[in-house]
Design a protein around this nucleic acid. Structure first.
Lengths: 166, 166
DNA sequence: TTGACTATCCTTAGTAA
DNA sequence: TTTACTAAGGATAGTCA
């Protein structure tokens, strides 16, 4: 029935460890969002999961911005180009480029989702909550909504990273 | 007594906010430590506190660095390239090599991005980018960057199409 | 200011569907 | 595999020393 005390040690059982990882990453991100909101500060976290190869980064603002920074760098092109005169190497390069393209496309889709969420934040579904007239309550509802959206974004990122074939 | 439910909103009272900050940062770092141990992964957290000037980092700077260094130790690209001297060997093994190189390049690029993120967070453009807190500005920046990304993608497609004819 | 206390709320390990 | 549940342990807001 859950809730047992857990020894602070590596969980050897694979399924249990992964389940714990998922739950705790989610919890961590929530905590980060909370301290960010409550204390009006900036914070971020990075988790390197060997199973995913790709680090998980949060929260939203800095996360998005740093992701964008990464997009701006497309390294390795010039360095590799000199190898293109060898035919087999050329084919290999094409393969690499295609893979890069695929990856970029997927990342781009992820970005689009993020942008959509931010637009949703901007314009706001506040009209849903027309019954609320008190300003404090309204601000609170908005905050909760933002939290909800942030959590959804983070969950989406998890799902995207997990997607087979990425 | 304590334990009251707290609204997720900026704590305006100075002393209360600082007290909460202190407690929650401690809690966060503990959580980070736990997930690191339990799941056998690497993680780090950075909290920027305007009052402190120095960001709170877990684990230590050196710890974060060493974490990243681990990932930087991907096998050398040049070492594998030497095998390409003998064309016959290359043709025999080209398929395997393609896969191997592609995989390593991907890993390498991911790590480069990670390092960029770390640098971005640690020293770099934090102050620059922190100025963007307004949602409108953020959305605008995102849109701008997405255009740049699309341009890059187009460039990449052109390169891919050109390559076979070179 | 810090540290200790503790009622109350929160997180989550284990389980089951 | 994910989702839902919940007992139990954990985190912490308010308070006092």
């Amino acid at each position: 029935m859950g809730g047992k005390k857990v020894k602070l040690a590596f969980i050897t059982k694979d399924t249990a460890r992964k389940a714990t990882y998922k739950k705790r990453v989610k919890g961590l991100m929530k905590k980060l969002n909370e301290i960010t909101t409550l204390c009006g500060i900036k914070a971020c976290g990075i988790v390197f999961n060997p199973d995913d190869l790709e680090p998980q980064i949060w929260p939203s603002n800095e996360g998005v911005q740093s992701v964008l920074n990464q997009f701006l760098h497309v390294p390795e092109f010039d360095r590799d180009r000199k190898m293109l005169n060898h035919e087999s190497y050329l084919k290999e390069k094409i393969q690499k480029l295609n893979e890069k393209l695929t990856k970029k496309t997927k990342e781009n889709r992820k970005m689009e989702m993020t942008v959509q969420l931010y637009r949703f934040l901007e314009k706001g579904d506040i009209t849903e909550n027309l019954s609320i007239v008190d300003q404090d309550d309204l601000a609170y509802v908005i905050n909760e909504k933002m939290e909800e959206i942030n959590m959804k974004m983070m969950e989406m990122e998890i799902n995207v990273q997990r997607a087979p074939g990425l």
